[in-house]
């Protein structure tokens, strides 16, 4: 369990004082992330996403409130167990080679059979070809994959990804998704936190999404709720005799759309029920033009809340 309790973080360095006072980056954030959860963190620039992650890694301390990772202070947890972390700005000494960097991180992570493990993660992230290339000559995509590779070096209970798809092409974005899914599948109690502007990707990866705004959690969206799993559907059929009656009979409670007499909103209880009723409709000779879930996309939900 990761727990933020009424966390306030103010930055009050000399610059902040010169600008007229401390900058409040987080303003009373309370958030719980149970084991087995993938939590997305979204919000505009300056909303406090990076501050939240830095607090979680123990690089900074809250001005007020408390941060706990499995009952421990964040720095204590990280120093004892480690966190699989990919930072937004991947900073690795440019003179290091890909292999050398992974060797160094494996030593820090105290990985057993480090050489073999480094080889495995390089193969997994397909960076073995650039093993001897210096970090300064890596493309942004390769650098991001190197950062992901170091995060996978050792088994961890918590993964924190800060803009992990930055610089990745669509193919690698999809692969990263499967890497994260595999990582979660290895232990169902693992926790993933993903801060990202890529809402489509978050929708595929996260179970819940915390929407940050001006240092506060504006909304906590549950993407795996009943509404998310069993959304209403939009059913459109051909204008054939008896079609409307058949729809009303097979989908009780179907609502006709205004201005579109052959389109309906139907609310089946489960995906299985959708299939069964659709089969019945087709058996009655109704021609189905379209059947699409009417789930609000994450982007719409995030923007909808902001209005």
């Amino acid at each position: 369990m990761i727990r933020f309790t009424d966390v306030v973080k103010e930055f009050a360095g000399p610059l902040a004082r010169a600008r007229g006072g401390p900058v409040r980056a987080l303003d009373g954030v309370t958030l719980e992330v149970p084991p087995g959860t993938a939590l997305g963190i979204v919000g505009p620039n300056g909303a406090g996403k990076s501050t939240l992650i830095r607090l979680l890694l123990g690089y900074i301390r809250p001005t007020r409130g408390r941060v706990e990772v499995h009952g421990m202070g964040p720095r204590g947890y990280v120093e004892k167990h480690g966190v699989a972390y990919v930072s937004e700005l991947v900073a690795i000494p440019p003179s290091w080679t890909t292999r050398g960097a992974l060797d160094a991180y494996a030593a820090l992570a105290e990985v057993e059979h480090a050489r073999a493990r480094v080889g495995e993660v390089m193969e997994r992230m397909e960076i073995a070809e650039v093993a001897q290339r210096r970090v300064r000559y890596l493309s942004k995509g390769n650098l991001q994959r190197l950062a992901m590779a170091q995060a996978l070096l050792a088994p961890r209970g918590v993964m924190v990804l800060d803009e992990p798809t930055s610089g990745l092409d669509p193919e690698w974005i999809a692969r990263l998704r499967s890497v994260v899914a595999e990582w979660r599948a290895e232990d169902p109690n693992r926790i993933v936190l993903i801060a990202s502007h890529n809402l489509d990707e978050l929708e595929r990866t996260a179970d819940r999404v915390a929407v940050l705004e001006s240092g506060r959690v504006r909304e906590l969206l549950d993407l795996r709720s009943a509404e998310g799993v069993n959304p209403p559907y939009r059913l459109e059929v051909e204008d054939t005799p008896g079609a409307v009656e058949a729809v009303h009979e097979i989908f009780p409670g179907a609502l006709e759309e205004e201005g579109a007499p052959w389109a309906f909103r139907v609310e089946p209880a489960s995906p299985r029920e959708v299939s069964e009723r659709l089969a019945a409709l087709l058996a009655r000779g109704v021609v189905v033009r379209a059947l699409a879930p009417q789930r609000l996309r994450l982007e719409e939900r995030v923007r909808g809340g902001a209005r």
Binding site: Y59, H81, L89, A91, P93, A104, L108, A109
Partner: peptide
């Protein structure tokens, strides 16, 4: 300054010991 600590100290390492 360059942020190298971010990845390094996400591993189970105490900065003071390092």
């Amino acid at each position: 300054r360059r942020g190298y600590y971010r990845l390094a100290f996400s591993h189970p390492t105490r900065p003071l010991a390092f």
